[in-house]
Amino acid sequence: MEIGTTVKNQPQTGYFSSIIEAGTAACRLYGLSKTNVVDIARLLGKSPASVYKIFPSKAAIWDAVAGNFFETDLCLTPSAGGELTSAASRLKETALGQHRLMLRALHGDSQMFDLIVLAAEGNWPSFRDHLKRLQAYVGELVATGIATEEFAPRNVDTAAACFCASIISLWDPRIIGALPVNHSELSAHELASFAVAALRPSSPGEESMAAE
């Protein structure tokens, strides 16, 4: 499915949001494969033509619906008082918290989860933006950890990209959807702990071993 990224008449913000809400409702009611623009327009009490005046295609609507879901249901809110905890703890909780949101969607909102799997498979703008937001937040935590000397000095953008790549199995809906039913979060804890540990300063012995 090709995604049309150009939204027409964007100043009609209210109608834009209404279409996204109706698209979300239609996806949950009928399922992704059975929903069409006629269904969305009917929920709005409008004509399909009026919807196409805002979005150039059904694919563009789905991308906007997925983007809204990423920004609301799959947006991790830092815990209150998080600034008082270490950057390492906040980074680990970010990895695990985002994973829990994905699992909640998988088990509690299957139609929308199918949509974000499709967004990931198609590398839609909504999925790319979601990963960029996560990496930007990870970068902030890495920079904080470097400033407090929890983490070794290094290029923040590179470190954030490497961290996100190392734990992507916790965040990618394609992988999460393929997890066995008896999947334990223990492995997620181990992976997140391992990724955080890689950012810490190396001991003199480790540095000499790495140089050999």
Rank of each mutant, 00 (worst) to 15 (best):
W124L: 06
A211H: 10
D73S: 13
Q111N: 13
P173T: 07
K8N: 12
M209E: 15
S18R: 14
G139R: 02
T158D: 11
S50Y: 12
N155C: 10
D157R: 10
I19M: 04
A195D: 01
G145V: 03
E140P: 06
C164N: 08
K46G: 00
L32N: 03
I146E: 05
V117E: 14
S169H: 02
G23M: 08
G23F: 04
A120F: 07
S17Q: 14
V138F: 06
M1A: 09
I40W: 08
V38R: 14
I146N: 02
N68K: 10
G4D: 14
F113G: 05
G23E: 05
P180F: 10
D109V: 07
P180A: 13
S202C: 05
T77Y: 06
L32S: 03
K92G: 06
I168A: 12
L141R: 03
A64T: 05
S33E: 15
G122S: 12
Q111H: 12
E190D: 06
L106A: 08
G81F: 02
V142F: 01
N68D: 15
A195P: 02
D172S: 13
N9W: 13
I146M: 12
L84N: 09
A198M: 09
R128M: 10
V142M: 02
A211N: 08
R133D: 08
G31Q: 07
L96A: 05
W62P: 03
H99R: 10
A66R: 05
N68G: 13
P125E: 09
M102F: 03
S126A: 15
I167Y: 01
T144C: 09
P204I: 08
A59W: 01
G122P: 01
E121S: 11
R42I: 00
D129S: 12
F163P: 02
H99C: 12
M112K: 02
I40L: 05
I61L: 07
A95E: 02
I54V: 14
C75L: 11
E206C: 04
S50Q: 13
A136L: 06
Q111S: 14
G177W: 07
L84C: 00
L32H: 01
V51L: 09
C162F: 00
E207W: 11
L32K: 05
A197Q: 12
G145F: 05
L134K: 04
R200D: 02
N36W: 06
D172Q: 10
D39E: 12
Q10E: 14
G108R: 04
G108C: 06
G122W: 10
N9A: 13
S79L: 09
D63F: 09
L186F: 13
W171N: 13
M209H: 11
